[in-house]
């Protein structure tokens, strides 16, 4: 066999060995055997002395070509083996991405608080200050300052928790009106306030009554405050809270601390006004009470009713939440079943 035949055979054998190498080690053995310092190609070069001089150049050329070919194939084979090893590793690392993740507990805001926060932002945007007042209140602020003198029959309207002869758990947030008016310096501008908070009535707890609930009081006093301002403001509140397409109506009502007094209804969001169980077939749902501040209330706070006028409104935060979220038992707010509470997470803004 001459060198050309050997080279031909080596080429065939070498490419086949490269192809069949199963791992990096056996591939390396093949490499050493073919192109190593003591490999077959080197050995062929060592036999150049036996080759006719005129053919040496051709043999050398062939050997170099074959070396290049082997090296190229070896390199490709190595890349393929590395790739295969990585793939095998990834296969080992494979996970079921459809399994559930590890969940933390997510916090949630109380539904009444969602309504409260939302209304607060709404009123702050219109220039109202948020004011707080005491829950253990004097009769003076809870009643007398609000045009409810002793023996006023309306004091019967609210069965009240007294803590001593002249202190009680406030039955409404309205005393904060009186306190704020008394303190307000009108030389620094008109008064615009809201006051959210807890109130208490001596009612046994059932689906529609709670001895404790939350109200929000609003008050605007200035030199040019009218019933039409009240109407415009309340309409904004109703639409903000219950939807832009709601209709509203004002009805005459009675509160000792306002005159005229009104209540506002919104068209029923369940039936759209046709009449259903929620609106008791009237098509309307009562949402709040309001009115023009009674002159006696202004006077009691040291404000001249001939110069200043104002409007006030009071709304039930529980009631708003009940209406907005379709809650049918007010006790749900205060028994705080976590499953009840957590459904409001998506209401967060």
């Amino acid at each position: 066999m001459d060198l050309f035949d050997r080279l031909k055979a080596l080429r065939e054998q070498g490419l086949n060995d490269i192809k069949e190498a199963e791992n990096e080690k056996s591939l390396n053995d093949v490499r050493v055997k073919l192109v190593g310092k003591k490999g077959e190609l080197t050995e062929i070069l060592h036999q150049m002395k036996d080759v006719a001089p005129e053919k040496r150049r051709e043999v050398g050329q062939k050997v170099n070509e074959l070396r290049d070919l082997f090296n190229e194939n070896l390199s490709q084979a190595k890349d393929a083996l590395v790739e295969k090893a990585i793939e095998a590793k990834f296969e080992e690392e494979k996970i079921d991405v459809t399994l559930p993740g590890r969940r933390r507990h997510m916090g949630s805001k109380h539904p009444i608080r969602i309504i409260q926060d939302d209304l607060e932002r709404f009123f702050i945007g219109m220039g109202y200050q948020v004011v707080q007042g005491p829950e253990i209140e004097s009769e003076h602020y809870n009643f007398e300052m609000l045009n409810l003198p002793k023996d006023h029959p309306a004091r019967d309207m609210q069965a009240t928790f007294y803590v001593d002869d002249d202190h009680l758990l406030r039955s409404q947030t309205s005393p904060v009106q009186a306190r704020t008016m008394e303190k307000h310096d009108f030389s620094k501008g008109d008064l615009k306030m809201i006051s959210p908070g807890k109130v208490y009535r001596r009612d046994d707890d059932d689906a529609t009554h709670s001895h404790q609930f939350m109200q929000m009081e609003g008050l605007v006093v200035g030199k040019n405050i009218s019933l039409s301002d009240l109407k415009g403001t309340l309409e904004l509140v109703a639409k903000h809270e219950f939807g832009q397409d709601r209709e509203t109506r004002l009805r005459p009502s009675y509160f000792p601390f306002t005159e005229p007094s009104v209540e506002m209804d919104v068209s029923c969001f369940e039936c759209g006004g046709k009449g259903c169980a929620i609106c008791k077939q009237t098509g309307w749902i009562e949402v709040l009470g309001a009115g023009i501040v009674h002159p006696n209330v202004l006077s009691a706070a040291g404000i001249d009713p001939q110069v200043y006028s104002g409007f006030a409104f009071g709304l039930g935060l529980d009631r708003f939440a009940i209406l907005k979220y379709g809650i049918d038992d007010i006790r749900d707010f205060y028994s705080d079943d976590v499953r009840f509470l957590q459904q409001f997470r998506q209401e967060e803004d």
Partner: peptide, 10 residues
């Protein structure tokens, strides 16, 4: 009418 209170900047 529905109007809004003119209370100046507050």
């Amino acid at each position: 009418k529905s109007t809004h209170p003119e209370t100046g900047e507050l």
